[in-house]
C-alpha cells in the first residue's frame, strides 16, 4: 500500500463495500429485480460508469484479473481510464483478454467469446428502468414490477411495429428474467441478448446516478420480449469482419475516408485480435498485412 497509501483497497471504504455487497446479494437472490443502493460519489462524472465501478470495487479482490471494455473495445478512453483506476487503487492485474479475466466491466457490449463459470460481467447502466419510457412515475413503475404488470412493455414494441413495420428497438431491448422481472439489459445491442440467456457467468448491473443494482445469476433464463407474429430476431450482417473474417459477430462500421469508403470490423477488439493472431484474415486484413 505504499504508493497509494491514501486509498482504501479499491477506493471505496469497507462499510460502503459491505453495503453494496448486500445489495448485490439481494439482486442475485431476486434475478432482474432492481435493488436500491446508496450510490457514492466517484472520481469520475455520471455517465462514465460510476455504477459499474462501484460494483466492481465491491467485488474485486487482489487475485482478480480485470478487463474493461467500452463498445467492445479495450482501448477507448472510458475503458482505459477505468482499467488504470483499478490498477492504481486495487493494484490488480489487468488484461484485455476475455479468457484471462475474472471480472469484466463493460459498457454497451458482451464479449463474443462465451463466458465461463467463475467469470463476472459488470454492466454500466445509464437507465435501469425499462418502463420509464412510457411511465415516468417511479412509484407507479415499482408497483408495476411488484404486480408483474408488463403490458406497457408490449405497448412500446407495438409502437415500433406500427411505425416501422417491425420491432425497431435495436439496443436496450427489454428482457424477462427467469419468467418474472422485466429488465433493461443496459444499452447493449439486442445482438447480445441471447448471450445473457443461461450464461455460465454471473452478470451484475450497476446504475450509479439512479442508485440501482440488479443481477442475472448464472444459468438464468433471459428471454427477449416479442409478439407471436413478430418474433425477436438479432441483427444480421451481410459480410464478415473486414479484418479477421469473423461471421456471426457484432460489427462496427468504420469510416475510412471522405469519399464514402468504409469497412465493417469486429466491435470486440480482443476477439478480432485473437482471431488474427490465430491466422484468420478478412478482406482488408490481407491488404493491411501486405502493407
Amino acid at each position: 500500500m505504499n504508493a497509494v497509501a491514501n486509498y482504501n483497497f479499491a477506493y471505496l471504504d469497507e462499510q460502503t463495500k459491505r453495503m453494496i455487497r448486500r445489495a448485490i446479494l439481494k439482486a442475485v437472490a431476486i434475478p432482474g429485480y432492481q435493488v436500491p443502493f446508496s450510490s457514492r460519489e466517484m472520481p469520475m462524472p455520471y455517465g462514465w460508469g460510476t455504477g459499474g465501478v462501484q460494483v466492481t470495487a465491491s467485488i474485486i479482490g487482489p487475485d482478480d484479473v480485470l478487463k474493461v471494455i467500452d463498445q467492445g473495445a479495450d482501448d477507448t478512453t472510458n475503458a482505459v481510464s477505468i482499467r488504470a483506476f483499478f490498477a492504481k487503487v486495487a493494484q490488480v492485474q489487468t488484461t484485455t483478454h476475455t479468457a484471462e479475466a475474472s471480472i469484466i466491466q463493460t459498457r454497451h457490449r458482451i464479449p463474443e467469446r462465451k463466458l465461463e463459470a467463475g467469470q463476472i460481467l459488470v454492466y454500466q447502466v445509464p437507465i435501469p428502468e425499462p418502463l420509464r419510457f412510457l411511465e415516468p412515475r417511479e412509484t407507479e413503475t415499482r408497483k408495476m414490477h411488484a404486480l408483474e404488470e408488463y403490458g406497457l412493455m408490449h405497448v412500446k414494441l407495438y409502437e415500433d411495429i406500427a411505425r416501422h413495420g417491425r420491432i425497431a428497438t435495436t439496443y436496450a431491448y427489454p428482457v424477462k428474467v427467469e419468467g418474472r422481472y422485466v429488465m433493461d439489459p443496459s444499452p447493449t445491442p439486442k445482438f447480445d441478448n441471447p448471450k445473457m440467456h443461461r450464461s455460465e457467468a454471473l452478470q451484475l448491473f450497476g446504475a450509479g446516478r439512479e442508485h440501482r443494482i440488479y443481477a442475472v445469476p448464472p444459468h438464468t433464463d433471459v428471454v427477449s420480449l416479442d409478439f407471436e407474429d413478430h418474433p425477436f430476431t438479432i441483427q444480421h450482417f451481410e459480410q464478415p469482419c473486414a479484418l479477421c473474417g469473423a461471421e456471426q459477430v457484432y460489427l462496427d462500421e468504420v469510416i475510412l475516408d471522405d469519399r464514402g469508403g468504409h469497412m465493417y470490423v469486429c466491435s470486440d477488439t480482443d476477439h478480432c485480435e485473437e482471431r488474427r493472431e490465430a491466422g484468420h484474415v478478412g478482406v482488408l486484413g490481407m491488404k493491411e498485412a501486405a502493407e
Partner: peptide, 18 residues
C-alpha cells in the same frame, strides 16, 4: 398511437399477437 392506446389493455391481459 391511438392503436396502442386501445390495445394496451389487451396486452396487459396477455395478448401477444400484434
Amino acid at each position: 398511437s391511438a392503436g396502442a392506446n386501445v390495445g394496451e389493455r389487451l396486452m396487459a391481459v396477455g395478448d401477444r399477437h400484434y
